[in-house]
Design a protein around this nucleic acid. Structure first.
Lengths: 198, 198
DNA sequence: GAAAAACTACACTCAATAGTTTACTTTACG
DNA sequence: CGTAAAGTAAACTATTGAGTGTAGTTTTTC
């Protein structure tokens, strides 16, 4: 790899780590340069402004996230098992260091810049990419009985986010770990109690 | 009211509004003084540092929140109706301008200062003050059938927060209003499907 | 191996902002 | 009314941090 590329990556890595630790506002370009092992001038040669650097990080992180396999409804597998698989995948995403890092950085900025929230909200992630079609198919197959598929999908995902993601994001319960398996079990149970076809 | 008290309130009001709009970091003490109609020196006579002012605001807001009536389980009223009442009260809290203001200010800081998150997390608010005993009583009366009351209480409240609070907090869906009645109906329905005693 | 591109150290400008000092005016109150 | 408490305006200090300019060194590329 060329030196120029190595520096660029080092700068992105350094900025990401510092933004995560201290927030964008509390991180100076001098700190970033120092942590990256680059001169400040080099930082500015790669990224004209701090804001440009911030958006480059956001873009890189978003690109690294959506890699999970799409799960489609399968007539021949128990619905409980399929929903559990989806939940497991989602919990893995929501609790990954990668995702938490981007989330914390992004959420901080979103509270300050509503327009950023808008643009990120449209970017649907994780199982929200495919959950509605999945539920629709299960509906058609007579396995589930859902009136409003969009609401049901949100109910499912929001349970997971509320139990595993937000507590980690905000640092509630730093010591007491939520048992992911328990959360998944409870979420699937709640969902099926409501929507499993009679 | 004495001038001194009036100034103190004006400063708190101004700081609250500005912290809400721009975040604590992006609000200067000069701005606060100007908006409060006070001299900067007066601001510093009331609050020695910006941080002290921030905590004074937090304290005032917290004091203004927990005022809602506690709802206790009533043997003679349908459980659906009682849960709906609780949900309505909670949604009113979660969508009130007051609560959203403190939440936005506090959440921003929480992302930066995990220890603040710890101290605020303990401060349980809204219906979380009384929901677990309520469910326990309903359990004992044979109206509900819940294994883990703490999990169930969270499931209930998290639904409401996810649908009405977080979207407003982060400015997702600024235009498209979530219908609060619909959210309440769906939440109660989901909960009772799972936990209503046979 | 030489020209071009990229990196470095470091001094610099410029603006913002927390908090202070001072000299003076207004308000509260016995 | 007179004194003490509180408020005011405005200049001031000191620091921080974004971004630039420069002169010289290293890396890439042809």
């Amino acid at each position: 790899m060329k030196l120029s590329e190595k520096k660029r990556l080092a700068i992105l890595d350094a900025a990401e780590a510092l933004f995560y630790k201290s927030g964008v506002e509390h991180t100076s370009m001098d700190q970033i340069a120092a942590q990256a092992g680059a001169s400040k001038r080099t930082v500015y040669n790669h990224f004209a402004t701090k804001d440009e650097l911030f958006h480059a990080i956001l873009a890189r992180m978003l690109a690294n996230i959506n890699n999970d396999e799409v799960i489609s409804f399968d007539q021949n597998t128990a619905i409980e098992q399929q929903l559990t698989a989806i939940a497991e995948q989602e919990v893995r995403l929501l609790t990954s260091a990668n995702f938490l890092r981007i989330a914390k950085i992004a959420f901080m900025q979103m509270l300050l810049q509503p327009e950023l929230a808008q643009s990120l909200a449209n970017n649907s992630m994780g199982c929200m990419r495919y959950l509605e079609p999945f539920l629709q198919d299960a509906n058609s197959a007579g396995v589930l009985d859902i009136d409003e598929v969009d609401v049901a999908a949100k109910q499912f995902v929001y349970q997971l986010k509320s139990f595993v993601f937000y507590p980690l994001l905000y640092g509630f319960e730093s010591a007491k770990h939520q048992q992911p398996e328990l959360v998944i079990k409870q979420t699937v149970a709640l969902f099926l109690a409501r929507y499993k076809a009679a």
